[in-house]
Nucleic acid binder design. Structure first.
Lengths: 249, 249
DNA sequence: ACATTTTTGATTGTTTTTGATTACTTTTGA
DNA sequence: TCAAAAGTAATCAAAAACAATCAAAAATGT
C-alpha cells in the first residue's frame, strides 16, 4: 500500500472513529506500528489530526489549536522577504487573488496604497486587508475553521466569476516530481481553479516546503512561477521547469 | 479508551448530570478513580468544568463567553435576551441565515452544539462561529470594511444558491409606516433577497430601533416576525401587522 | 544491472499512563 | 466537638506507549 493511500485511510478511520488507537490503525492498514507512528507524526505536522497518547484524534474537539499562530512565527522573516518581492509584482490597477496561508498573508502590508482589487479565500487576511484599506472581495463557500480558508463546491463556482491579473498561492510541498502539493483536497481544488483563471501565477514557498510532498497535487511546476528563499544547489533543477525568483533575507 | 475520548465522555456526563460524582464517572468510563481524578484536575485546569468535593460540576455561566475580542455594544443585555430567544427557535438540522450586526452576533453562543448549518454575510461573526464549532458558509462578495459585511451584486448572486429554514435579520429602523429600514442600500438589497429565500423570517430589533427610520426600506413589517425587548403600549399596533415576541431582560 | 536513497518493520531502552495502596484532609452528623 | 465516613493527594510498580536505532526491502536514479 502506498503512503498517501495509507494516510488517506488513516484519516478516514480517525474521522470515523473520532479517536482511534494505533492498534486499530495497524489492523485497518496492515502496516506496522512504526509506520503508523511515522504517519501520524507527519499528519499531525500537517495539521490533519491531533496526536494523543495511544493513538490519534480529530483536531476539532476540546483543546485549542494555534494552527495559524504557529505557522506565522515559523520562518517569519523568510516569508516576509518572499511576500515583499511578490507584492512588488503587483501593478497599479491589478485584480489579484491572494490564497489563504501565512506566507501570502505577509504580502498585505506591502500592498498598502496600491489601487488594486484583491480577491481572497483566506478569512484571516480580511482584518489586515481592512486596516490597509484595500478593496477586497471574499470568496463565498464553506468555512474551514481550522485554516480559516473558504472551500467547497460553492467556492469553486463562485471563483469562476472572477479573472485575475495575478494570483499568489501557497503550497505545502514543492518537488520536481509531484509539482505543488497541499494536504487538503478541497483547498487543492480551489488552488487549481485559481491557476486556471489567472494570467500570471506565483507560488510562494519558503525553503521548508521544498522536497516535501503533501496529499494532493495542485499542479506541475510549470503551471506557476516560484518565489522562495530556498537556495540549495538543487534549485537549478527546478529552474529547468519554471521561472524561480530566489530572495535573500 | 484513549484519554481525549474519556475526557469527552466525562464532559458529556457532567453536562448531562449538571454535577457528577466520581463514582459515577468511574462507572461510565470504566477507568479507575485515580484516572478520573487526574482527568478532572486537567479539565479544571483547562476551564472545562469545576472541581467540587466528591466530583465535578459545570462551570457556571462564566464559561459561555470568556473571550476577549468582544466589542462593548449598546444595550448588550437586551440584545442578548433577544438573541437567546431567537436561537431557541432554531431546530436541529436547520439551515439558517444570520445577518451581519451586533444583535444577531449574540445568537451564536446560544447555537453551540446544535447540528445546524449557518450562512452569514457578517465577517465578524466568523470567529465566534469558529469557537463554537458551527458549520458555516460565508457569503462571497465585496467586503464592506466599515461594518464587516459582505455586499454587492456578487453577494446577491451567491446568495441565491441557498435556501433557508430560518433567517435572522437586523434592522436600524422599525416603524408602522415604513417597515424595516437600514442605512446602506447594498445591505438592504442583501436583506431583501434573504427574506425571499427563507421560510421563517425574523427581525431582531432592540427597543432603540423602534419609531426610527433609516435611508433604505428593506420590507414591510408583515414580511417578517419581530423579536424585541420594546414593551411600549404602541407595540399593540405593530401586532396587527405581524407576529411579535417581546422578551424581558 | 548496479549503486543510492527511501521506506519499512523489528528491536531496543525510555517515558508516560494507569490503577492500587497508602496516609492525609474535608465533610457530616450524632 | 469529635469521630466516622467520604474524599483526596502522594507514591509506586506494572503496563502501555513511545522515540531512537538499525538492517532489510523497496523504490529510484545512473
Amino acid at each position: 500500500m502506498l503512503t498517501p493511500e495509507r494516510q488517506q485511510l488513516i484519516l478516514k478511520t480517525v474521522k470515523n472513529d473520532h479517536t482511534s488507537k494505533i492498534k486499530r490503525l495497524v489492523e485497518v492498514t496492515g502496516a506496522s506500528e512504526s509506520t503508523i507512528r511515522r504517519d501520524l507524526d507527519q499528519m499531525e505536522e500537517q495539521g490533519l489530526l491531533r496526536r494523543v497518547h495511544g493513538g490519534a484524534s480529530l483536531r476539532s474537539s476540546a483543546s485549542e489549536e494555534p494552527t495559524m499562530g504557529e505557522k506565522v512565527t515559523r520562518f517569519h522573516s523568510e516569508k516576509q522577504a518572499i511576500a515583499q518581492f511578490a507584492a512588488s509584482l503587483v501593478q497599479e490597477g491589478d485584480c489579484i487573488f491572494i490564497d489563504a496561508g501565512s506566507t501570502t498573508y505577509e504580502m498585505i502590508p506591502f500592498l498598502k496604497e496600491k489601487n488594486i482589487i484583491v480577491v481572497t479565500n483566506g478569512l484571516s487576511h480580511l482584518d489586515a486587508l481592512n486596516t490597509h484599506q484595500i478593496k477586497t472581495y471574499v470568496l463565498g463557500g464553506l468555512v474551514k475553521h481550522q485554516t480559516g480558508a473558504v472551500v467547497g463546491a460553492g467556492a469553486i463556482q463562485n471563483l469562476q466569476q472572477y479573472r485575475f491579473d495575478q494570483c499568489f498561492m501557497g503550497a505545502n510541498g514543492v518537488t520536481l516530481k509531484d509539482g505543488y502539493t497541499t494536504p487538503d483536497p478541497e483547498e487543492a481544488a480551489i488552488k487549481q481553479m485559481t491557476l486556471n483563471l489567472s494570467k500570471n501565477r506565483y507560488v510562494l514557498a519558503d525553503h521548508s516546503k521544498f522536497e516535501k510532498v503533501a496529499f494532493m497535487k495542485i499542479s506541475d511546476l510549470s503551471e506557476a512561477e516560484i518565489i522562495t528563499d530556498y537556495n540549495d544547489a538543487s534549485i537549478e533543477e527546478y529552474r529547468k521547469k519554471t521561472n524561480i525568483k530566489v530572495v535573500t533575507t
